[in-house]
Write a protein that binds this DNA or RNA. Structure first.
Lengths: 197, 197
DNA sequence: TGCTAAAGCGGAACACTGTTCCGTATCGTC
DNA sequence: GACGATACGGAACAGTGTTCCGCTTTAGCA
């Protein structure tokens, strides 16, 4: 709605050309640094890697959360869009829910420190928290409602709580071989089902 | 073994008197500050409240984790000791396990930010992590083994994983009325049982 | 092509952390 | 009372995020 169709590139080329180039470089650099040093890598590292100054990074992304969102937006969107597809493709809503949660867990676990920062109560991360929630809670709600409607899942928990719980269980999943977040999440999901699987 | 019996006080009064007084003041101040500002309150705040300098706090507690441990040691010990008692007092090992976990959750949830810091991978907190684990995992193992032995709980998860999962679920439990850690933990515990409760 | 206002850039500087270090003050003893 | 060991206080250092402003680059226009 906001970005009109453009003839040349793929996104609305507003502003100066060098500004766009820098923003692009920043996104690439951030993605690379996030992989090696985690999402909470020093801002200076990202700026250095992109070859820009600190002012530039803060102009394009007023807060670190904005940068994280920009880097992962595509993947979050993909996860959100997979929800309805899963629901249609599966005879059992509970199975669809479980598969979708697996998708979410895979996403979180492979992003060094994302779950931590998602859960951080530092000011400035509400926007990140809000983005994930806005995008994913509705999807989860739909899956959960379907499963509850089919009598496969108890209605104790809201979608928000479920997602928060799953997110929390993913914290520290990397960096500790003794801790397998997927197993814990599986147990949690089993715990909300009406019958033992 | 290390502290011999003493006639006067309750603990071994080693070192100077003023040093002991300061350590005491520091513990009191830390406990108070933890309540109001959370476990991750600035070190300076604690020192100021105790009326001592920064050097003093670092001499008595080389790292913040040591201070946290000192403040909560009694409660952690109480939790550890409650385990065997619960097991004996209950006909169902699974019920004992659930009760014990409730104890642990209550402890974590009422301590602003303890669960977060327990999970932090910042260097210097391994000692805190280790203390909790050393003290509580054996207790949890015993309860879990009993429950598995009674056929009430599946043996998917180790005690370590279970405790980590429970700890993670407690993160951010205060400061968000929409999130009820106890409910999530209950679901997790339900998920490891052999039959739906 | 050359000029100019706007847009953008870089990084010094600030605020706030944890942590170290050492000159000074205090304690307990002789 | 003097003295050595012990402990104290807080300045100073290091590593964060974030702001700010003088300078540079861009892009439109004559």
């Amino acid at each position: 709605m906001k970005d009109g169709a453009e003839g040349a590139g793929r996104a609305a080329p507003a502003g100066r050309k060098d500004a766009r180039r820098n923003k692009e470089a920043l996104l690439d650099a951030a993605a690379a640094v996030f992989v090696t040093s985690g999402v909470d890598a020093p801002v200076r590292d990202i700026a250095a890697r992109a070859g820009v100054g600190l002012g530039t990074i803060y102009r394009h992304f007023p807060t670190r959360a904005d940068l994280i969102i920009a880097v992962y937006r595509h993947q979050v969107d993909a996860c959100a869009e997979a929800g309805p597809a899963l629901l249609e493709g599966s005879p059992s809503p509970a199975a669809a829910l479980a598969q979708w949660i697996d998708l979410f867990v895979d996403f979180l676990v492979t992003k060094h420190g994302l779950a931590e920062v998602l859960r951080s109560d530092d000011a400035g991360f509400e926007v990140l928290h809000a983005y994930f929630l806005d995008r994913l809670v509705p999807v989860c709600t739909r899956l959960l409602d379907a499963a509850v409607g089919a009598g496969e899942v108890r209605s104790h928990l809201g979608a928000y709580e479920l997602m928060r719980g799953v997110g929390n269980l993913c914290i520290g999943a990397d960096s500790d071989p003794r801790y397998d977040a997927r197993r814990l999440v599986a147990a949690l999901v089993a715990g909300i089902r009406t019958s033992p699987s």
